[in-house]
Design a protein around this nucleic acid. Structure first.
Lengths: 332, 332
DNA sequence: ACCCTTGATGTAATCGATTACCTGTCCCCG
DNA sequence: CGGGGACAGGTAATCGATTACATCAAGGGT
């Protein structure tokens, strides 16, 4: 593989000149042309490893997401990747598989690779390594999930308005006993969404007692399914369930189907997160849609602000309610 | 951030000694302990950029996939990532968005990053850059989609047995006029799956005339939907349709639903690729499941063989038929 | 007692770029 | 006609590791 020295020899100039041509500084037209010709003839491509060593910038961002198989994260990753590429950055995606240990491991690996900045959709509670990241001075932006105690901007969706709308929707359909399946207790997103929903329901005179808030230990279909089972085995089961993410909603739907319960006739089901195939489930699921692609773009922009040394604030984008048929009243 | 020199100073040895300790060569216990203590105290982590420059190995693999939002690729990427990590390699995932230009761009970027090897699930027809990769000597393994003329092993699933089984399944359910929606004409996978299916059907005395083989220009839901429309507007529409990937199947289902046609009563639908949510569509879709995770693992192993200089052969793993309810005869 | 082997460790070259600093031309102006 | 500024372009230091080679001490064989 050709190096800058080969180009210099071929063009009859020094490596410094080649470097300058390639980085758009000084050289005069004649020299420049010779250099560019040599570059083309040799098919020279700069060694980004060497460049990164010298400049201490890799022009690469890192993204750690909770689960590659979760369509929400996938859409997010796609948006982040496109925006990063558009702005001249590469992206290394790390998949934590919802395990804090693996997440720590990944974060460290990415740090080792000297990425210019890190985007994290943290699994579980905040991890120790995130503090290391902040301490190391590597720009960090949290995505979707805030982590208490970690001093970094967070880009996420606020469910306020959408949950208010959802409460009204459920109330108007006569649901009086709604329940929720939320993220593990103690995670900020979970608690926040729960409180938001509870106060929205209160506005319609509907209570959300603690026994109707099932917090799953993990955000998986299996967890969602178990929580749904628990809710259904209550002496007074709910007539509507909001699952806090798409995978748990899937599990919840499985449990309903396994018991022969009909959606929405017996129980209404709503998911937080909207993913493409929700339109194709049986029945199509009503969902609180996060502005996923916008979140991804905003996160990249926020991170670049940090990388370029400017202060950056957290971003909160509004989620919106997408009504389909899983609460009754077919949309026609 | 601490460098190897800092560690050397702290331990009172030379950088060479530190390097040797860290790479498990020669030094004696006493020295080694001092070095390791210094490493721990300083929280030293080797700069992989510098190491890569010197050793010309990055311990990173590249993966270019057709579409990050396609659940099949996502599952594949997840499997590849896990296996690579397990073997001490990092993974950079590039998303071509089913565009050959973007794929070329990505491949070049990955080459620039001096990845040790490349895995490509090529979008569209083979691209010129893949030849460059082979020429550059970077180990290359094709995943899922072979590319004619590119001399690299290919890891993929063979549909033979599963399609034979499918033909029997359809025949036994009385379907006499099956159609297919395949990949763009000229792509090896598409042609191959088509021929395979055709000859399997022939075994049951069922023909698959050219007008019942719709080849979509792109593998997207929209493409699948258009092809389904075309098939349905035929003077003699099909009574069963096999879509060659999960996204086209989704589009096909949309079209059926939009026309008020019932699956499987009016038309049977089968997808190539099985993705988790097929179990939750309305109705649950019968599918030809590829051994996705095994494909990912096999691909990594094949690539590592190449990287380590050993010859590596193509791998063909069997797909299998997963019967659900979209062809009739509810599975109980 | 001497030489040679062996093993631990240090010195310095090297990977391929970027860039501070220096040199040499050329031109302009007094 | 000479001094000085502007600018092209070369020389060499540098980033942080790995590693060939040199050095040195200790120990063993005869």
């Amino acid at each position: 593989m050709a190096t800058i020295k080969d180009v210099a020899d071929r063009a009859g100039v020094s490596v410094a000149t080649v470097s300058r041509v390639l980085n758009g500084r000084s050289p005069v037209a004649g020299t420049r042309d010779r250099v560019l010709a040599a570059v083309a003839e040799l098919g020279y491509r700069p060694n980004v490893v060497a460049r990164a060593l010298r400049t201490a910038r890799t022009r690469t961002l890192g993204l750690v997401i909770g689960d590659l198989r979760n369509a929400f994260f996938t859409e997010l990753a796609d948006a982040v990747e496109q925006e990063a590429r558009r702005l001249g950055y590469g992206l290394v995606i790390g998949n934590a598989g919802e395990s804090p240990e693996q997440q720590d491991d990944l974060v460290r690996t990415l740090l080792d690779r000297r990425i210019d900045g890190l985007l994290v959709s943290s699994a579980g509670q905040g991890s120790a390594t995130l503090h290391e990241v902040v301490a190391s001075g590597t720009p960090l932006v949290l995505l979707d999930r805030p982590v208490p105690g970690v001093d970094a901007p967070c880009v996420r969706a606020g469910g306020g308005a959408a949950l208010t709308e959802l409460a009204a929707h459920l109330a108007s359909l006569g649901r009086r006993r709604p329940a929720v399946i939320v993220a593990p207790a103690g995670t900020p997103v979970g608690d926040e969404r729960l409180e938001c929903f509870r106060s929205a329901l209160a506005g319609h005179g509907i209570a959300l007692p603690p026994e109707l808030a099932a917090s799953s230990p993990d955000m998986t279909p299996a967890g969602g399914r178990r929580m749904m089972r628990r809710l259904l085995e209550l002496p007074e089961p709910p007539d509507a369930v909001l699952a806090a993410d798409n995978l748990m909603a899937l599990g919840a739907l499985d449990e309903l189907r396994a018991r022969g319960l009909r959606v929405p006739d017996d129980v209404a089901l709503v998911a937080f997160d909207d993913v493409p195939w929700f339109a194709h489930t049986c029945p199509p699921l009503t969902a609180v849609a996060q502005p996923t692609r916008e979140l991804g773009r905003a996160a990249v922009h926020t991170l670049l602000e940090r990388i370029e040394g400017r202060p950056a604030a957290s971003v909160l984008l509004p989620a919106r309610l997408v009504v389909r048929r899983s609460c009754g009243e077919p949309s026609r």
